[in-house]
């Protein structure tokens, strides 16, 4: 029997999605906290966003509510905008510092 995509999604219990997304999110957070390279930190943030996307999709499917998935598209679009701006900033930093190590940046303090 042909299954709709939501139905396919629902074959896995919701909890698993939540656990998965949370784990993914936590990995992202851990990455943000432990890495010093600005690009990698930023990638970890993207990972966090993707965890959210997974979560939203799962909820959306379970609730049979398209809003969640629409939200995902918005997140993707916004993330794209963020990526462009973020990479621009990182490039700018690299130009001035020849490096993207965030710990080099501590002129602003106290």
């Amino acid at each position: 029997m042909e299954q709709t995509i939501p139905e396919v999604i629902r074959t896995v219990p919701l909890e698993y999605y939540i656990y998965f997304a949370t784990a993914l999110f936590a990995i992202g957070v851990t990455g943000v906290l432990t890495r010093r390279n600005a690009i990698i930190i930023f990638m970890c943030v993207e990972l966090m966003l993707n965890a959210v996307n997974v979560l939203l999709t799962a909820f959306s499917a379970y609730r049979s509510d398209p809003n969640g998935q629409i939200f995902v598209f918005f997140i993707m679009a916004v993330a794209a905008a963020e990526v462009s701006v973020g990479l621009g900033i990182i490039v700018m930093i690299y130009r001035n510092f020849q490096n993207t190590d965030v710990n080099l940046l501590n002129r602003l303090k106290w």
């Binding site: 965030v102 710990n103 940046l105």
Partner: peptide, 10 residues
């Protein structure tokens, strides 16, 4: 307020 982003994030 050490100026290190890493610390701030933590």
């Amino acid at each position: 307020q050490t100026g290190y982003v890493g610390l701030y994030l933590i």
